[in-house]
Design a protein around this nucleic acid. Structure first.
Length: 193
DNA sequence: ACGATGATGAAC
DNA sequence: TTCATCATCGTA
């Protein structure tokens, strides 16, 4: 079973899309070579109120694609050297996206190879050229469901990385990590805010 | 713990 | 036009 995720998958609340990303495959085709990476770590950036979200200060040239259709890539450059890969989620006009932060070769070997958003884009040759393009075979970068189902006990939620400037929004559990070993109950009991 | 490294956005 | 900032990473 192998299905390319359609725009409707992404046209849902950002947190739901982020959660459901775990266990899906990010597939890159460049030239004749295809690479598939199981997604194991993502972060949600949810709308203008989210102070960690680029759209918090309104629309700019850089973040414009976040305001567009779900299922398009939002790629930007940070720290003078790294490309960040996001996919736009939710209704057009509502600026939200999911940042792809890490991936592995399989469910049981989820760590080590592509941990870190900058390493992931470097490994998959992702740069500005994909910004605004749809996630599809045509763009050479897309997401597939290959039948892996991820149970709740394998999903760990934490604060997002590198967004300390966002005040209370930095503390929200918007980072989702796939953990092969079952996680104990979330810290503090409920966990999902 | 820190420096690399350059695009971006807001201020002037 | 200038300048602070930055959804990171490798080395120490």
């Amino acid at each position: 079973m192998r299905r390319v995720l359609p725009p409707s998958f992404f046209n849902r609340p950002t947190l739901a899309v982020a959660r459901d990303f775990l266990g899906k495959y990010l597939v890159r085709k460049v030239g004749g070579k295809t690479t598939a990476v199981m997604i194991t770590e993502v972060e949600a950036y949810d709308g203008p109120r989210d102070r960690a979200c680029h759209a918090h200060r309104g629309r700019t040239e850089r973040n414009a694609v976040m305001f567009g259709a779900a299922g398009c890539w939002y790629v930007y450059f940070v720290y003078g050297m790294h490309w960040m890969l996001n996919i736009v989620t939710g209704e057009a006009g509502y600026p939200a996206a999911v940042l792809l932060r890490g991936g592995g070769e399989s469910f049981d070997a989820t760590r080590g190879k592509w941990d870190g958003p900058g390493k992931l884009t470097k490994a998959l040759a992702v740069d500005r050229r994909l910004n605004g393009k749809a996630a599809s075979r045509a763009s050479g970068l897309w997401i597939e469901d290959r039948g892996t189902s991820v149970a709740a006990r394998h999903v760990r939620r934490t604060e997002r990385i590198g967004v300390a400037y966002a005040g209370s929004w930095a503390k929200k559990p918007y980072r989702f990590v796939l953990s092969p070993s079952p996680c104990p109950l979330p810290r503090g009991g409920g966990g999902t805010d």
